[in-house]
């Protein structure tokens, strides 16, 4: 019999493995659809960083400023929009704080501007597809072929990006 200390060690290793979180998100996304779909669609919408950010921002703007920005039916019908991104922000903050990994890291102003503009661009691209890489995975699991196409071209994009990164490193070493 493993001692309770060993069990705890195994559990903490398991909790820190990405595959465990992947399995958890998949099952929980299906569970949340089974639980909440009466409030409205779309399907395969259990977890998505881009769409849920859109729902949160547009939903709260609609409530506060009385606008009619578009958002998913589930967030429109519910008393408040989906809050998963708020949860991710708080959960990750707590995890970083508890484990002493929270540290303010500044970059130069130019980098901040680039990241801000890329945030706008990535969100818009994700909305044109109708999801971020996570909803693409959920949609693939739900049986959507177009989402599989998204994942395939994303992999090609990433490989091309890594080539750019490698090239950049080489140039740095030459200088």
């Amino acid at each position: 019999m493993p001692t309770s200390n060993q069990t705890r060690k195994y559990l903490s290793v398991l909790a820190r493995h990405p595959a465990f979180l992947g399995a958890l998100i998949g099952i929980l996304a299906a569970f949340s659809q089974a639980l909440l779909i009466s409030a409205g669609g779309p399907e395969a919408y259990g977890f998505c960083v881009a769409c849920h950010t859109r729902d949160l921002v547009n939903g709260m703007t609609n409530l506060i400023a009385d606008t009619t920005l578009s958002l998913a039916a589930i967030s429109k019908n519910a008393i408040l929009p989906v809050m998963s991104v708020t949860g991710v922000l708080i959960g990750a903050y707590l995890a970083a704080r508890v484990n002493g990994e929270h540290k303010i890291r500044r970059s130069d102003p130019k980098t901040h501007v680039i990241y801000f503009l890329c945030g706008i661009l990535v969100l818009n691209l994700a909305m044109i597809f109708g999801g971020c890489p996570y909803r693409a995975a959920l949609r693939t699991g739900y049986g959507d072929i177009t989402a599989l196409l998204f994942i395939a071209t994303m992999a090609i994009g990433v490989v091309l990006g890594t080539l750019v990164l490698l090239k950049r490193e080489e140039n740095k070493e030459d200088n």
Binding site: H52, S84, T86, G87, L89
Partner: peptide
């Protein structure tokens, strides 16, 4: 969704 997000955010930071 908030509870789900908290769990995912915590584990995403750890992993």
């Amino acid at each position: 969704t908030l509870i789900l997000g908290l769990l995912i955010g915590y584990l995403a930071q750890r992993s």
